[in-house]
Design a protein around this nucleic acid. Structure first.
Lengths: 357, 357
DNA sequence: TGCAATGGATAAATCGATTTTTCGCAGTTG
DNA sequence: CAACTGCGAAAAATCGATTTATCCATTGCA
């Protein structure tokens, strides 16, 4: 342990060397675990390290290597549970490999995404975990490709010809949702989504539609997709329900393809005084802690965050260590939690107390 | 713009120097904006920079300075909206000053908090934004003090004799909650919290209690505090209500001092089949996006995340630049959103449809 | 004319490690 | 006894910038 060392300059490897009566090179070798050092000298080094409280400066240590022990993580946002957990997991995984994680939020902007990436390239990070704003074909992935960076794409991504990808198996999960809703008797379902996140949303939509149509060929599936912003979706949804009301028709269930959509749907239900599941059923892609304590609890598709994070890091580190071969696209299975917000159509009063149980 | 530059070694300052026909020192000066360089040479440097697509290596650049252009941020978790927004804000603020933010989650562990801090010290970060797990007197703050690090403490903190602090004005907000609940006629209120986060929780509790007692001296305020984990709170709360039921008494409102407590309370209400606000009213410290779309919408105290982040960074950078003087404790005012989960006691049926609108 | 001052740029030191090269010394071998 | 082998450690080069010291030409002024 360090003795006093108030707020002085921290000891460098040379301080340790002179204290131990050896050269800096020897200290470096001892700390790196090289065996060609006399045990006696090694001991002196360890003693000096203890005495001075010496710790390697990771910055200086990284200077000479081409790939520094830094991993960059770029997420579209930090505010949601999903990406919050993701960053937390990634950080832990990087740390346990002796790497530092530098995380940045692209705030849903592809321009910012590229800027951040350029800055991380300046840092000569060993690898990047990129959760693109839109999909695998954005400018960020292009930048990575053009600059020979190693990285892995996650979440809003299906497969790529240059980078490994890891994401939730949206299609399979959506198929399961379709089976559940159809099984409950729903024959008119609205799907809500954000359009430009092409890859994932398309997978979720098609997975749902294909399965539903296969089970009930004449099922009616309406789709409301906003371009890229959440706000327009609110209007679109409101208009959709108003038009339906004019024609005296209304879906009995809503499947939201992403978290914000679930919030928008709930908000719209509130505005219209509709209750789940009596007036309408609701399932959302993406789970959140609050969904199980509200009344009713909201049914949701749970993405396997841990698995995505851990597989992304695994494959990333394999690439960093030089593993070759074509990029692989990995899909992790989701869990579908059918909570109280889903019921059978027309089984409850159109307002008033929710189903107890 | 860089021409091809596939995945070769990136150009260094020497490459630029030789291309421009000057020395590396001159290049460094030009890029640093030193004026003692002949305009012609400066132009040649800029041209070479453009041609090669040169960018300064921040790591190498930081090598010589004692304080590196890195800011460390340590949060208890990343999963909540509050800390997610906080990290997002801090990152933006650091970036706009040319600093890189390295964020890490202590995962509510003081031991981890100190480890992370030690690692950041290894990086010779210029400053630390620490949101301590417990309060300002934890081991992490001690470590910072002992090592002469500069930093600012935020969130679960009131004031410190070594570091500046920035946090929400918990006491004032709680007083406002008290006024609101008392105004609605509540005379028996339960306060739920997590005990060991001493500073903040005490302020919230005392701010509430003092104001409530001042308004209605014989008001009854029960308190359920868990030590540090959320899970025990669930049991404590359940026991509290069961005991109350045995004696035929029950509070008419619950004030949760932190987000998880609000979730636990809601969960307990569900279990007992109680609805807000007819059976019981609820206010929580900490707002979340979902609280305004659920039915009922949950009343909450909104913490001024942006203000806290921005003030924390301001004061931190002032200290980094060497400003002296005693540490200052800053309190940012909160906003209290009284939503539908709060009503007057005994005004609604004990179950069934919530109040519309 | 001579010497100091100054502008502008380069050489060299520095930051703190890692890695390569060199070197000294001991023990073998021819 | 010279040459060779090898071990262990020190010296030096390196990474990519910044900063300090140094140097060369002018220019200014006595």
């Amino acid at each position: 342990m360090a003795h006093r060392e108030t707020q002085q300059r921290r000891p460098s490897i040379h301080d340790v060397a002179s204290r131990a009566g050896v050269s800096a090179a020897t200290v470096s070798k001892v700390l790196a675990g090289v065996t060609t050092v006399k045990p006696e000298n090694a001991q002196r080094v360890f003693d000096a390290v203890d005495l001075l409280g010496y710790r390697v400066d990771p910055l200086a240590s990284d200077m000479r290597r081409a790939k520094r022990r830094i991993i960059g993580a770029i997420m579209p946002e930090f505010e949601s549970e999903f990406f919050g957990q993701m960053v937390s997991e990634l950080e832990a995984l990087a740390e346990q490999r002796g790497f530092t994680l530098v995380a940045a939020s692209s705030r849903e902007s592809e321009a910012r995404e590229k800027e951040i990436l350029a800055r991380m390239h300046d840092w000569r990070v060993a690898g990047i975990v990129l959760a693109p704003v839109r999909n695998e074909h954005g400018p960020a992935a292009g930048f990575m490709k053009a600059n020979g960076m190693t990285g892995v794409l996650i979440d809003r991504v299906l497969a790529d010809d240059a980078f490994d990808t890891v994401s939730a198996d949206s299609a399979a999960a959506s198929a399961e949702v379709a089976r559940a809703l159809v099984g409950k008797g729903h024959r008119h379902i609205l799907v809500v989504g954000l359009g430009q996140q092409a890859a994932t949303v398309r997978a979720r939509l098609e997975g749902f539609r294909a399965t539903a149509l296969q089970l009930v060929p004449d099922i009616r599936i309406d789709v409301v997709l906003a371009e890229s912003e959440v706000e327009p979706l609110r209007t679109l949804l409101s208009d959709y329900f108003s038009e339906g009301a004019n024609r005296g028709e209304r879906p009995t269930a809503v499947y939201s393809l992403f978290l914000k959509g679930t919030l928008v749907a709930l908000s719209e239900f509130r505005r219209r005084g509709w209750h789940c599941p009596d007036d309408i059923s609701l399932v959302g892609f993406d789970d959140a802690e609050w969904m199980q304590v509200t009344w009713p609890a909201i049914a949701a598709v749970v993405q396997p965050v841990r698995e995505i994070a851990s597989n992304a890091m695994d494959v990333l580190f394999r690439r960093i260590e030089g593993e070759g071969g074509p990029p692989r696209a990995r899909l992790e299975p989701c869990k579908v939690l059918m909570r109280e917000s889903v019921g059978s159509p027309g089984s409850g009063p159109h307002s008033g107390g929710g189903s107890r149980q």
